[in-house]
Amino acid sequence: MPAVEVKNLVKKYGSQDAVKGISFSINEGEIFGLIGPNGAGKTTTLRVLSTLLSINGGSVSILGHDLSKHAGEIRKLISYLPEDAGAYKNLSGRAYLQFIANFFDSKEVQGMVKKGIEITNLGTRIDDRVDTYSKGMMRRLLVGRALMTNPKLAILDEPTSGLDVINAQEIRKLVKTTAQSGTTVLLSSHNMLEVEYLCDRIALISDGKIVEEGKPKTLMEKYKARNIEEVFIRTVHE
């Protein structure tokens, strides 16, 4: 059974079609990348899968649960990292992780917080207020928050957005390790190198439709491209 199964998903904002009947599936433990230009429908798709938005057509099944009927159950199993997420500024990093962990099984709270602190790698700064953090520190805190809960499915929207090379590389390693431990990862990214490095499979989305899907290597061979960036340009812009 696939971890995620999306069939003919349609999402509209008023009269505007944001997602126009896309279908894809993600296997358990797989890192799946959703790639496309700005406004293609990536974030909308991720928001739908994160139970934030309702659907106007089609069906979505996550870890065996129908999204339209069992959103509450799905929230226990997933973790979502929005692209421009923030944290509560008046809390310390540790207090923020504690606040999030408290929503989960009380027996696992301390373990989650410990894991979150390790992932963030913020050292003593974990006890400082969040509003004193740099952008990189904030992103690391949020990645820590997203992965500490041991989700079955991690939905990461631009996980390395706005990070410097070193921080970005650390987070990529983290995502890879997380997937190796059994978590299914669905991510979106503008960084084609990142996609190539991380993803087992990718889907290229443009104007609300999936225009290509497959393993990065297979797609590069198919389009006789040297990298995913060239595949992206050929499928989306040509």
Partner: peptide, 10 residues
């Protein structure tokens, strides 16, 4: 930008 996270929590 904390609302989205809050709404995806159990």
């Amino acid at each position: 930008k904390t609302l989205e996270t809050l709404l995806t929590l159990p």
